[in-house]
Simulated assay, not measured.
Amino acid sequence: MNGIALTLRALHQGERDLERDLLAAAERHRTDHEFHHVAVDVARWSREHAARLADAGHHYGLDLSGPREQSAPGALSALREKAAEALGRRPETGLLLLHDLRELHLAAAGNSLHWEMVGQLGQAERDGRLLDLATSCHPQTLRQMRWTNTMIKELSPQLLGSV
């Protein structure tokens, strides 16, 4: 498999994982209405990106429309969900939210790097398909990163200072 195929496959999986993680975090923190609604909204971008990547993948001999590769649900993930259920609106949920925001930010940053690589290849190879895909999707990924970063900046002082 060539480099572009590997990158498109990794980016497609990354967008699908980010969508799943955003929706899971939105559900875990459903009592924080602002977070919940924005997370659901920006998850839609990742779903759209994955669909566009699957369409573009056909041109490069990839079938990205199959079932999502499942990463093994870790004990930490299960523990976070159970803890969030048990804690409800208690202050400790803020620490769980910060943890989720950090993980979401890192996932979006990984996708952003892949989008950058796709865009650079599109530019170097004069491949309008790749360049258009990257220039239309990458800004939304950057907005996902800015949102998580802003939330971390806003919440960290009050949540970490009150523990």
Rank of each mutant, 00 (worst) to 15 (best):
G3T: 15
I4S: 08
T7F: 13
L8A: 01
L8V: 00
L8I: 03
L8H: 04
A10Y: 07
L11D: 01
Q13G: 09
G14V: 04
E19G: 11
L22Y: 09
A25G: 03
A25P: 00
E27Q: 11
R28H: 11
H29R: 03
R30G: 08
R30E: 05
D32W: 08
H36F: 07
H37M: 12
V38M: 10
V38D: 07
V40H: 13
V40E: 12
V42P: 01
A43M: 03
S46Y: 01
S46N: 08
R47D: 13
R47I: 02
A51R: 12
R52H: 13
D55S: 12
D55I: 07
D55G: 06
A56H: 05
G57Y: 08
G57R: 04
H59G: 14
H59I: 06
Y60S: 07
L62W: 06
L62G: 02
L62T: 00
D63V: 04
L64S: 02
S65D: 11
E69A: 13
Q70K: 13
S71N: 13
S71E: 11
G74S: 15
G74F: 09
A78F: 07
L79M: 09
L79G: 02
R80W: 01
E81A: 00
G88Q: 04
R90D: 15
T93Q: 02
G94K: 00
L96I: 01
L96T: 00
H99C: 07
D100F: 00
L101H: 00
H105A: 05
H105D: 10
A108G: 01
A108M: 05
A109K: 13
S112D: 05
H114E: 15
H114C: 09
E116P: 11
V118Q: 06
V118G: 07
E125R: 07
D127A: 11
D127W: 13
L130K: 09
D132N: 15
D132Y: 14
D132K: 14
L133F: 10
C137N: 02
T141R: 03
M145K: 01
W147E: 06
W147D: 02
K153V: 09
E154N: 14
E154W: 14
E154Y: 09
L155D: 04
S156Q: 05
S156I: 04
P157A: 00
Q158V: 05
L159A: 00
L160A: 06
V163I: 15
